[in-house]
Amino acid sequence: MLSIGSSLDRRCAYSGEVDVDAYAEAHHGEWTRLEELSGRRSLSGAEADELLDLYQRTATHLSVVRSLGPDPTLVRYLSWLLARARTRAGGARVTTWATVRSFLLERFPAALYRLRRWWLGTLVANVVVTAVMMLWLLEHPAVEQSLLGPRQIDELVTNDVEGYYHESAASHFATQVWVNNSWVAALCIALGVLGLPVLWLLFTNIANLAVIGAIMTRHDRGTLFWGLILPHGLLELTAVFVAAGVGLRLCWAWVDPGPLPRGRSLALEGRTAGTCVLGLALVLAVSGAIEGFVTPSGLPTWARVGIGVLAEVAFLLYVFVLGRAAVARGHTGDVDAALLDDRVATAA
């Protein structure tokens, strides 16, 4: 039945030779099965996948039927069937451990590895620019005085930097930091499609870091500053640079789409960017927990920084071990092929 239906689809798409009755007879079994699955109260994982697959096929069938010379009765039936299946599918594709496992061990690390040149380049460039800015500010103390008054500098050095991490309870602080950083990462990806806005967003963040770092270093509080920044900052800033790199790749997808049509190139990178948004929210949850519970803790500086370094190393191993293996198995970071729209051949 399926092979006959596929043959009919191709013939209809290219020449319109097959009539509606023959087409309906070829696909009647699929429509009946879709109607049966849409009426069930509960579905297994395999049945939910089958329902989605049949839904996509039937959507294609409806398009073909309309192109053959619409049969109002059949069009109404297929439209009703698709509406019913759509409603059922909304609750059928529950998140399973297999789905979560696939995302964490294949889809997300594959996306990070495939886009590694973009975000690693972004990371290195920002680190270099931050270091240059700090060194320049240390050699030009007049700039510091033009940015902040003596009282503001004194407050910053003696209270503000350290007090920031003790403003609220650790759990509330961690949540607040996670939400803020997730928003910054999402902005980097969303604005990245335009190119320049994400560069400005990155510059404002590293300029703030460079200015405060230079002031703290000049006033012999550099050890305190880096002891507070590094535990969570390594992973947190890496996640932000990943988001920026992904956003810039999204921009490049329409500037230079390569062998793909511009629309398909942008769609591919857009779906992969969606994967990165979800994954980076988890990464930033980890850095937020470190910032909320480790950074302001009473642990010695070496222990707090050590935890930050371990988190960063774990992330890099995740990308370059799991991600590389996932890419070798054919994963790209894009959504499953079953979730993509069917492409129907059309006459040139």
Rank of each mutant, 00 (worst) to 15 (best):
G279C: 05
E36V: 07
P259H: 06
D341V: 05
V294W: 04
L278P: 08
G274E: 04
T275I: 03
E167K: 15
E269Y: 12
L340T: 11
G308H: 01
E269R: 11
P72K: 13
G149A: 13
S146L: 12
R117K: 15
A273P: 06
V179F: 14
P109C: 04
F203V: 14
V198C: 09
H61R: 04
L234T: 04
R93S: 05
I215K: 08
L284N: 02
W302G: 06
S42C: 01
S67H: 11
L156W: 09
G298F: 05
R304D: 05
F108E: 00
T60G: 15
R57W: 07
L196H: 09
R10K: 08
E312D: 12
F173L: 11
A89S: 11
I215N: 06
F225N: 07
M133W: 03
T272N: 01
W226S: 07
G90S: 06
V283R: 00
G90H: 08
A214L: 04
A214I: 04
N126G: 11
V132G: 10
V313E: 00
V240L: 15
I307R: 02
R304S: 11
V313R: 02
R264L: 13
I153S: 06
L82K: 05
L43G: 12
S6H: 13
F103R: 00
L202R: 05
V283P: 02
T60V: 12
L37N: 05
D9I: 13
L310P: 01
V211I: 13
C12L: 14
W118Q: 10
L81M: 13
